[in-house]
Design a protein around this nucleic acid. Structure first.
Length: 789
DNA sequence: AGGCTGTACTG
DNA sequence: CAGTAC
DNA sequence: GCCT
DNA sequence: CGGTG
DNA sequence: CACCG
């Protein structure tokens, strides 16, 4: 079953000396090194490593072998990965930064590992006995490779002292790994890089991925005859080589060159297959190598000829696009203020409506008034409206009253604004806006964007493509999906039938690639790419990801373990692990994934609300999410809970009581995640509920926030998510930071890790949605207008 | 080339 | 911490 | 993927 | 075994 | 969860 070709060893070499950086990364002054976490399974007595580290690693199963014939395949992957690393931002490559990748290595035995050989042989025999070698999967071992960037001048900690720690249990240290075809004892001047993983017979495929993206395409199984594998992967590899890297000329030198010696540095942690769980990850699904079909390539070339993606000729297009965009009234780069003329308008305008002042009875001064930053009065907005509605029937959108006011308000702004806009933009803008509002006249039961769209066929195809990319667990695909979402949304909003690539390209959010695809759709009515990318794994992993608690990683692992259907998962095929939450997700798979009619949300809420109010009559409790956005059907129920503090009391402890009561009532049926501290003024609960015994189970979230955060919480929990992201993004660009607790100014972010804040900044708004809009210069938009996807 | 939201819970 | 969810 |  | 990442 | 102490 094993390949009979020559084996190449990959050595992991411990080093306490800094290797010349050129040995690792030619393009960068940083040095990668690896921290090796020694599994706790390692022998207590580490004396055996005192002398020969190679031997030590061999014992630790850290030396792998693989057939030479797959060297180039692997090289392709590694170099891809290295490209990624090398091309990462300076920020990512700064000293101290780290990333990781996970490799599932076929557990090929090395010639010196008798035990393993024996094991393999045994398996092989067995497999042969059962007839089909394919079913006899090679054991694989998951190796997590962490990479840490060290300053070139930095000293790489020696692994030895770290290992010295591992007297009893485990230890860690820095390990530099490089691969050679030679024994380390006879180091070559030219250590060779070598595949760390390759398809072994009996394996479907292997997928390697790093933090940023998968390392190369999934390696296909040579279903029958390894030559086919080779063939299938190579074209793609070459393709990439040409376009992708600086390989320009090295490419031709062919394989020899391609396999050219190369050092790779990996930091690994945790290897051993000692855990059964590790085994799950074993072989990965066969999947497409997504080579571009010649046809597609042609098309693309042609297109790029006509409208080169880069270069001068695109300029005109871009310019045109801008103009066009203005016409389309989508001048803003932030998708959440598309109907904003520009950030500048935000501040000048409307005095906040006084009816917005809350609370009805009295507002005490200890309640911080929103900073009247832009001359606004900072009155509260929606909560009031909610309050009044609570008293009334609440059948309508509780904010109706506010909408009118806000709309008038906004319209006024628009009028004033338009005068200052460029004539072109202005006229178009108001026109469009008018069209919009008329379309949205009777919102409550409308479903976001126009359900039928003149470009529906295009949308459908792009969505298919999006779904395919959603299945893939890489960062690249993640962003691709993000882009697709926005492009699709943009196309949906585009009211005219798209008739040409150029026309599509002018739409903001639609780039050259998507425009190409649209052209293909227009011409052929189809997208070839959908066909060859739509492999079985897409479908299966999509099913799995439908399970609450299962994301791309888990889905892929399960697929790799051999699962293809929900039944397989239920049967734990491949010894997969299923968490408690996932178990619930499976049990209620259909219920959770189906959307529920709006009235059902109302029905459930009508049961919950009285119970909550009984606990505290002053409680503010309302439904957020898609319900608040007015959708006719909802995926889940988001209930926001807070409480005015004017009487000096808070809602502390309410959640705990409420949850208990709801469980007693049989309304809550399952907990999915419970807040760290249920008595905190800020807490999130997720679970399942149902209206009554005869109803289906539905996802429900309770979102408890401090009174002061109500505005921004409202904003956040109303969404939609794209809208939120856009808004937060804009906040960033303006030097603010927006989260579910407030809008902050003066936030200082860590130079290197933007997600980390050196200085929290000062909160400048949080109590009303309105002030957030205002400060960010975004025209007020009603919940149902905040749909961006 | 380097962005693309920001946070909480789970295991 | 990685993965997931929102 | 798209955008600056 | 409980804390930490 | 894996690791650490």
């Amino acid at each position: 079953m094993r390949s009979s070709g020559p084996l190449t060893q990959v050595h992991m070499i411990a080093s306490d000396t800094e290797l010349p950086h050129s040995d690792f990364f030619s393009s960068d002054s940083s040095l990668l090194s690896f921290r090796l976490s020694i599994p706790s399974t390692l022998p207590k007595d580490n004396s055996n490593m005192s002398g020969d580290l190679d031997e030590f690693f061999r014992q630790q199963d850290l030396i792998f072998s693989m057939p030479d014939e797959t060297v180039d395949e692997y090289f392709e992957r590694i170099s891809k990965w290295e490209e990624k690393l090398a091309s990462r931002s300076a920020r990512s490559r700064r000293p101290g930064s780290s990333t990781h990748t996970v490799l599932d290595l076929p557990d090929l035995s090395t010639s010196h590992e008798q035990a393993k050989d024996a094991k393999l042989k045994h398996k092989t025999t067995h497999g042969d006995g059962t007839g089909d070698a394919q079913t006899d999967h090679q054991p694989t071992k998951r190796v997590r490779i962490d990479t840490t960037v060290h300053d070139r001048s930095g000293v790489i900690p020696s692994i030895t002292p770290a290992l010295g720690n591992t007297t009893g249990t485990a230890g860690s240290g820095v390990l530099q790994v490089k691969s050679t075809t030679q024994d380390r004892s006879r180091p070559q001047e030219d250590p060779r890089s070598v595949p760390l993983a390759s398809l072994a017979e009996g394996e479907d495929s292997i997928i390697l991925w790093s933090e940023n993206s998968r390392i190369g395409k999934p390696l296909n199984k040579a279903t029958h005859g390894s030559s086919s594998v080779q063939r299938s992967i190579k074209p793609a590899a070459q393709d990439r080589g040409v376009t992708g890297t600086n390989n320009t000329e090295k490419d031709k030198p062919s394989k020899e060159q391609a396999i050219r010696p190369r050092d790779t540095v990996l930091k690994t942690s945790s290897a051993p297959a000692t855990k059964s769980s590790v085994r799950n990850v074993a072989t990965l699904p066969t999947s497409n190598l997504a080579k571009e079909s010649p046809a597609t390539k042609q098309t693309r070339h042609k297109n790029s000829a006509t409208a080169p993606a880069a270069g001068p000729s695109r300029q005109p297009a871009a310019t045109a696009s801008r103009v066009k965009k203005a016409n389309n009234n989508r001048p803003s780069k932030y998708s959440m203020d598309e109907n904003s003329t520009d950030g500048s308008d935000g501040e000048r305008k409307r005095a906040a409506p006084d009816f917005l002042l809350y609370p009805p009875n009295k507002r005490q001064e200890n309640e911080t008034r929103p900073t009247p930053l832009f001359g606004g009065n900072g009155g509260s907005s929606s909560l009031n409206a909610f309050k009044s509605v609570r008293v009334t029937s609440a059948q309508d959108d509780p904010l109706a009253q506010f909408y009118e006011k806000a709309r008038a308000d906004r319209d006024a702004v628009w009028l004033g604004e338009d005068g200052q806009e460029s004539p072109l933009g202005a006229s178009e803008k108001s026109q469009d806006k008018k069209g919009k509002s008329s379309k949205r006249g009777f919102t409550c039961d409308e479903k976001g964007p126009p359900s039928k769209c003149v470009n529906q066929d295009i949308v459908d195809k792009l969505q298919e493509l999006q779904a395919i990319h959603e299945a893939r667990p890489t960062k690249d695909d993640k962003w691709r999906v993000y882009a697709y979402r926005k492009a699709i949304a943009a196309i949906r909003r585009y009211s005219k039938r798209i008739t040409s690539r150029d026309e599509a390209f002018k739409i903001s959010g639609v780039g050259s690639k998507t425009a190409d695809k649209i052209e293909e759709i227009l011409e052929t009515g189809d997208l070839r790419r959908i066909q060859y990318e739509n492999t079985p794994d897409v479908k299966a992993t999509a099913i799995f990801r439908g399970i609450y608690g299962v994301g791309q990683q888990i889905a892929w692992q399960w697929y790799a373990a051999g699962c293809r259907t929900l039944e397989d998962v239920k049967a734990r095929k491949g010894d997969i692990k299923v968490s408690a939450v996932q178990e619930i997700g499976i049990k209620y798979y259909a219920d959770i994934n189906d959307r529920m009619p709006r009235v059902e949300v109302q029905g459930i809420f009508d049961r919950i609300k009285p119970i909550a109010l009984k606990l505290d009559p002053v409680l503010f409790i309302e439904v957020m999410g898609s319900f608040r956005r007015g959708k006719a059907d909802c995926g889940d129920i988001d209930i926001l809970i807070t409480r005015p503090t004017d009487d000096g009391r808070t809602h502390r402890g309410i959640l705990r009581q409420l949850l208990r009561r709801l469980h007693q009532e049989g309304i809550l049926t399952e907990d999915l995640s419970v807040p760290d501290d249920p008595d905190d003024l800020e807490a999130v609960y997720r679970g399942l509920c149902r209206r009554d015994q005869n109803s289906r189970h539905r996802r429900i979230d309770f979102l408890v926030v401090p009174w002061k955060s109500r505005g921004v919480a409202l904003l956040y929990y109303t969404g939609d998510d794209i809208f939120n992201r856009a808004m937060r993004y804009k906040a960033n660009t303006m030097g603010y930071s927006l989260n579910q607790r407030g809008l902050y100014a003066g936030v200082v972010r860590d130079t290197h890790d933007r997600t980390k804040k050196t200085n929290t900044g000062n909160i400048i708004a949080s109590e009303t949605e309105e002030e957030i809009f205002r400060i960010l210069g975004i025209p007020w938009q009603e919940p149902h207008e905040r749909i961006r996807s």
